[in-house]
Design a protein around this nucleic acid. Structure first.
Lengths: 147, 147
DNA sequence: ATTTGATGTAACTATTATTGTTACATCAAA
DNA sequence: TTTGATGTAACAATAATAGTTACATCAAAT
């Protein structure tokens, strides 16, 4: 199993929200969906998660999403966490009911918990070193957009 | 989405395979399934993956799986890779068809690829620092099994 | 050789999460 | 009041996992 596409789509959408300002393109879910190549409702769902995570503001009714913080202050970890559902704070899944009457089954969870948590944390810490600006800069450059 | 339970089950099974030697319990898929609390076929499928990855040998016909290398030479990354399907070498999924006619859609994949790959690699490198012995030792101690 | 009890594997089901889609109430600005 | 957007529920399609049944095959012991 792999991490869902919401994370990649969220980065894509946030880049658009920021750069579209320079191109006078309005950030409607329809416009964003065209670039991502999906249905507008898929975009709105992700927009809703980003809003809940306080990364963007959206004016309901009229098309207009914008970042709540400058892109250098939005880390990829912020974005990653924003689009994960609550039960996904654990990256690694475990079999739920190992046999407690078996000497291994009774202990296996506590034995593997910490290393798995450490591995996950390491990945998340690395994500936290990247910011939205890292995604925006090369695209702005290629399109001669002065930030 | 979370990483499937095969990884956790595989560690569980490998611990059993090694420690059952000291308890004169045979490593049939049925015994292993009892401890994991699942169907024997689920175990056989994971056993097949571990065999393919050269981590264990299994004598077909008669119940008897055993490690191919000492547990300190089997890393959690070895196990993790063993139970992932081929298309899962990428941890992070991406939306497959961003609009190539959009200035962002055309570049988003190449922009996010490297950071995602780095984050994944970091996690995998951390997994490679743990070995099967790390899971075996505390359980052996708790059960007074002298390794 | 035959029996026994295991593995190997195909095929099917159930469950679950994601993603896509339709529909519609609600909102904010012109 | 109209317009064109968001917010969200509800449902469908797809895909992966995990569980299950069934059975061919194998290897050792009798």
């Amino acid at each position: 199993m792999r991490i869902n596409t919401r994370f990649a789509v969220a980065i894509h959408v946030l880049v658009l929200i920021e750069l579209n300002k320079y191109k006078d393109i309005s950030n409607t879910s329809e416009h964003l969906a065209l670039s991502v190549n999906t249905n507008p409702v898929v975009i709105r769902r992700i927009i809703a998660m980003l809003k809940k995570a306080n990364l963007i503001t959206v004016k309901a009714g009229v098309g207009g999403a914008s970042l709540k913080r400058p892109p250098q202050n939005i880390s990829w970890l912020d974005i990653y966490h924003a689009v994960q559902s609550d039960d996904e704070f654990m990256l690694f899944n475990k079999h739920e009911h190992p046999n407690q009457n078996c000497y291994v089954g009774a202990s296996i969870h506590e034995v593997i918990d910490e290393p798995l948590h450490i591995a996950q944390k390491t990945m998340e810490e690395k994500l936290s070193t990247f910011t939205l600006l890292d995604a925006i800069t090369p695209i702005a450059k290629k399109n001669k957009i002065a930030l």
